[in-house]
Structure formats: structure tokens, C-alpha cells
């Protein structure tokens, strides 16, 4: 019997720590099922063998931080039927987007003996700021169950079950009492998209916002006001919104509303 033609998968890296790609390798047992269902054609983190495009599904990790990145993401888009960004870097610019609030040339001059060799952009931006993106997987890093769900949905031509609601819903489904109410821990959960598996609140900590703002009207102003009532000063409030998703529009605007 001839082998069933499997869809071709490619995994790409831009400015990032590789943690999201690792989530795919972390699938362990399920990775075998993935490798049966798709042809892993391009995945340098796992193998030097690089199969030629076009690719049915491209997973893109990392943000755009150099002029070369800008060219390369266009080529990736051209080679990809479906392009999915994986993680906070690819979806919002990542932690390295903290540079967007500062003078990058100043950093380069101070850090490098020969700044003239450094070719970088003034900003770290999301893949979606440069090319059309078909789906975004949130997280720093992404959740492997969401990744498998997304691949399974694409293979079976169904809607992926990736909820867009706030982390609070995931937290309450698990039965965790609200850490902000019961412990006074500042928590970004009410304005952050669910999906992490409720990692921090189960440890008694507030949400750090790894999954970025909910896509529809996050009321960051009301939450920031509550943080202030809990005793945070303006700088701490700003820092809450300036982490892995600092350049996501809602978080960027909220952080800019609080003093440096």
C-alpha cells in the first residue's frame, strides 16, 4: 500500500529562546503520533535535515529584531500554506520588546566594543506586524496541549479549541480560590488569555501574563487601579504590564499610563 501523503510541517526560529520549539519536542510520547501524522520537513532544533518547501504548516517562533528577519519572514510566509505563530515573542514581540521603550542605539554603544558590526532594528515586533498570520498560539512558552490541539484541529479540518477567555475562567474551572481575593496577590489573570494550565495561581502566585492580553477589550485600567489599591506603586504597576507581552497593544498602552 502506498504511504499516505502526510502534510509537511516546518518550524522556524526568529529572535527567541527556543522554549516554544522545545514544547514540540517536549510532547514526548505524543511526538511519535505527530511524526506519524505529519512529515516534519524542516525543524533545525531537532534535525539538520532540511526538506524543501512549500510547507503545509509553518510554526514560527520568535520576534522580528533585525533587517534580515524582515526579509526572512516574508520568505517563510511565501513558502507556507498555513502560518501559525507560537509564543509571546512571535505573537507580541516577547521580553526583548522591552527595547521598544528605550534607546537601542544607546545600549549598543555601551555594550559592544565595535557597535558598527551590530545590525539591529530599534524595535522587537510580532510576526503579525510583518506578514499575514493564520493563527496565534499564546504563551511564554506555549502550552504543549494547545499545540497538539491546534495540530489535531488542522489535520482533522475542525476548529481548534483554544479559548480566548480570561485566565480566571481556567483558574475557576480548576477550583483554585482567587489569589488576589484570598491572599492579596496582584494577579493579571482577569485581563490575560487562558491556556497556561493555571500554573501560578495553583502555587499561590498571581498571574504574570505569559499568555498576553485577552483579545477583546481587556479592562487593564480597572485592574491597574486595583493593583494600586493593593499597595503597588506606579513603577510596579508599569512593570506588571511590561514583561513577556510588553508590546501587546493593551499592555503597552497600560504600562505607558504609569510613570517610569
Amino acid at each position: 500500500m502506498p504511504e499516505k501523503k502526510r502534510p509537511k510541517l516546518a518550524v522556524w526560529k526568529f529572535s527567541s529562546c527556543d522554549g516554544c520549539q522545545l514544547s514540540l519536542l517536549d510532547c514526548e510520547l505524543e511526538l511519535l503520533a505527530v511524526a506519524e501524522a505529519v512529515e516534519i520537513a524542516y525543524f533545525l532544533e531537532a534535525t539538520r535535515t532540511a526538506g524543501k518547501g512549500p510547507y503545509d504548516l509553518s510554526l514560527v517562533e520568535g520576534s522580528i529584531t533585525t533587517p534580515h528577519d524582515v526579509q526572512r519572514i516574508r520568505e517563510v510566509r511565501r513558502l507556507s500554506k498555513v502560518l501559525v505563530t507560537i509564543g509571546a515573542c512571535a505573537t507580541a514581540g516577547g521580553i526583548q520588546a522591552l527595547r521598544n521603550f528605550h534607546d537601542v542605539k544607546g545600549f549598543i554603544d555601551r555594550v559592544y566594543a565595535h557597535p558598527e558590526y551590530i545590525e539591529t532594528l530599534a524595535t522587537s515586533t510580532a510576526i503579525g506586524d510583518h506578514v499575514a498570520v493564520d493563527f496565534e498560539l499564546r504563551g511564554c512558552p506555549i502550552n504543549k496541549h494547545q499545540l497538539l490541539e491546534l495540530i489535531g484541529a488542522l489535520l482533522n479540518k475542525r476548529k481548534p479549541n483554544i479559548p480566548k477567555y480570561a485566565e480566571c475562567i481556567e483558574c475557576k474551572l480548576r477550583g483554585t480560590p482567587c489569589v488576589m481575593v484570598a491572599k492579596g496577590e496582584p494577579c493579571l489573570g482577569p485581563v490575560v488569555q487562558a491556556g497556561c494550565g493555571n500554573l501560578c495561581p495553583t502555587q499561590g502566585r498571581g498571574c504574570y501574563g505569559c499568555f498576553g492580553p485577552i483579545s477583546h477589550q481587556p479592562n487593564t485600567a480597572a485592574l491597574a487601579e486595583h493593583f494600586t489599591a493593593l499597595g503597588m506603586d506606579a513603577r510596579d504597576v508599569q512593570r506588571r504590564f511590561r514583561s513577556f507581552n510588553a508590546n501587546a497593544v493593551a499592555f503597552r498602552k497600560e504600562s505607558e499610563a504609569h510613570a517610569d
Binding site: 480566571c168 475562567i169 475557576k172 482567587c178 482577569p190 479592562n219 480597572a222 485592574l223
Partner: peptide, 11 residues
């Protein structure tokens, strides 16, 4: 203006 639309009340 105050509601976070987080859904805690319903949960």
C-alpha cells in the same frame, strides 16, 4: 468602567 469581564462571579 470597573468590571473586568473576567467571569469570576459566574464561576
Amino acid at each position: 468602567g470597573r468590571c473586568l469581564t473576567c467571569g469570576n462571579c459566574t464561576m
